[in-house]
Design a protein around this nucleic acid. Sequence first.
DNA 1: TCAACGATTCAAGGATTATTGAAATATGGA
DNA 2: TCCATATTTCAATAATCCTTGAATCGTTGA
Lengths: 118, 118
Amino acid sequence: MDQRQALAAFGALSQETRLHIIRMLVVSGPDGMAAGSIAEKAEVSPSNVSFHLKELERAGLIAQQRESRSIIYTANYEALGGLIRFLMEDCCGGNAEICAPAAAVAACCTPATKEELQ
Amino acid sequence: MDQRQALAAFGALSQETRLHIIRMLVVSGPDGMAAGSIAEKAEVSPSNVSFHLKELERAGLIAQQRESRSIIYTANYEALGGLIRFLMEDCCGGNAEICAPAAAVAACCTPATKEELQ
DNA sequence: TCAACGATTCAAGGATTATTGAAATATGGA
DNA sequence: TCCATATTTCAATAATCCTTGAATCGTTGA
């Protein structure tokens, strides 16, 4: 993740509807969600959700794939991890104490990872 | 760090000049930097840097304090750590593998923390 | 082929954000 | 007090982003 991507990702996440969408897609996992379901759950119009999905895709945070009539969107875990990494390295580069609380969260996440990863 | 703050923080970091400023302030540590120095290093006009500093402060990512004629800005480490934490918990809440790369970075940061903290 | 469904695209508007330069504020020293 | 320094505020403009509804595109089944 370079700075260009990070700037786009921060911009994408700075909007309430889009943050909500990302949350839903992360939770829904590899199965993802159809655009219509996203619109329904987020309570926004189809054209509006389409606008925000395009924005999230442009930032590389989600991917799409057509499934019959629906278009399924999935969160890009690699990009999200990369963004966290960018934030930490950018912040840790020189001063490290910012990462301490993050390390605590990471410690709480990694046990689950052992089971989740493959 | 609640969602409102996170949205503001993401918005603040989605602008090139502001990301640059945050980087400089994190590196400069508790001493911080005067507005003029920031403007000079970032190569933007005084009024423009003032605009961006206000934006960063509004998002809670930096703090200011007057020092004679200068106004010294410092990075808010707690807020930056809180933002990383928000991103991780928001992403890890349901699926954990996103945090794996972040955990790796955290592991690389924590050794330094032992010396840096106090 | 035609109709219906799921979704995107487009244009218009309104709202927010960024940049600029001039004017104003605050501080410290002659 | 007066001037210089450091910075902010303000107004105007430009640029970007968000929302809305209508029109369009691709897919499926009758």
